[in-house]
Simulated assay, not measured.
Amino acid sequence: MAYVIETELTSAKKQKPAADRLGFGNYFTDHMFMMDYEGKLGWHRPRIVPYQPISLDPAAKVFHYGQTVFEGLKAYRTADGRVLLFRPQKNFRRLNQSNGRLSIPAIDEEFALQALKQLISIDRDWIPSEEGTSLYIRPFVIATQPSLGASSSTHYQFIIILSPVGPYYAEGIHPVKIHVESEYVRAVKGGIGMAKTAGNYAAGLKAQDDAAQHGFAQVLWLDGVHRKYVEEVGSMNVFFKVDGKVLTPALNGSLLDGVVRDSILQLLRSWNIPAEERLISIDELYEAHRSGTLEEAFGTGTAAVISPIGELNWRGERLVINGGTTGELSAKLYETLTGIQRGELEDQLGWMVEVE
């Protein structure tokens, strides 16, 4: 189906914040994209409008049954003024995977990318150029049918908003301390752990808050059945370098198929560094630490790209990794990936998509 995007430009542009005040997700651009879904009409009425509140009936199903999914990706301004997106096709493909699991109608991925490019072109001057900054992109779908019946919605909205963001690490990349969670469970195979949906994040907030009160940046989730196999770090995938080999949990239905995770695996293999996707138990990591073969650990995600892990806390015991400093491989992966994203290094794997 051919779509025509209606466009309404704002008559009152916002004042842009200084780059050193951006933080993460605190400011939003002048415009947003919206599209509706309704019964036989399917997805229709795509439009770019001034950024504004959403008006929903109090009975909208998103409030009561959590039928919503989202994505997160970034656009980068290069030194020569180009605007680049990092693997956006994979994000929209994953959005549809999440849609399928939450019983939400699929979107047209090719059109979604076209709409995103048009939205970014309109708000292009919001993209910061300072070191470490970018334009964070949040596509999401919400169920809007006003009904308290516990069933899939018949009405939805697909929305994209944009937010200029500062460096994830204001003072440079540095290792974080992680608490290994052994009381709460985030997801299990067969559930919604593989979908990027609000419920997954809500399930982790209590453990994350508890960990923060004890000085930990995030939690390392163990599987919900055996309570011993490593899954994710907070909202990130996780990697461990053990005796020269890089390990990451295999996708098993309860893990998010991270875009950065996949990119890291491709880079490692292009560098001929052994990388395995498999079950990894916390006991295995404990033994590797005790024997001195646990060399590095890091989380991966859109916001931070690479987040080195300097310490794991498991049952009150501290497992300090690489002396609590950023490992050589972690630093190289961070510098390479961010260099490609910002157009400073050659994109040999064909990941970047230019916004004209």
Rank of each mutant, 00 (worst) to 15 (best):
T7H: 04
K16S: 10
P17L: 09
Y27G: 08
D30E: 06
D30H: 06
M34C: 14
D36H: 14
G39D: 14
L41C: 08
R47D: 07
V49F: 00
Q52P: 08
P58W: 01
V62G: 03
Q67M: 09
T68L: 10
E71T: 11
G72Y: 06
G72A: 13
A75K: 03
G81S: 13
R93K: 14
N96I: 10
Q97H: 12
S98F: 05
I107P: 01
D108V: 05
K117F: 03
Q118W: 02
I122C: 11
I122R: 12
I122P: 12
D125S: 14
E130R: 13
S134C: 13
L135F: 05
T144P: 07
Q145M: 11
L148E: 09
L148R: 03
F158G: 01
I159Q: 04
I161Y: 07
L162P: 08
Y168S: 03
A170H: 13
G172M: 08
E181R: 03
Y184Q: 13
K189Q: 15
G193N: 05
N200E: 06
A202P: 03
Q208Y: 09
G224A: 10
R227P: 00
R227Q: 15
K228H: 09
E231H: 07
D243R: 02
D243I: 09
L247T: 01
T248C: 00
T248P: 08
V260M: 10
D262N: 13
L267F: 14
R269P: 02
S270K: 04
R278P: 10
H289C: 07
S291I: 06
E295R: 00
S307A: 14
I309E: 04
L312G: 04
R315C: 08
E317C: 06
E328C: 04
D347T: 06
W351H: 08
W351A: 12
V353E: 14
E354D: 10
E354P: 04
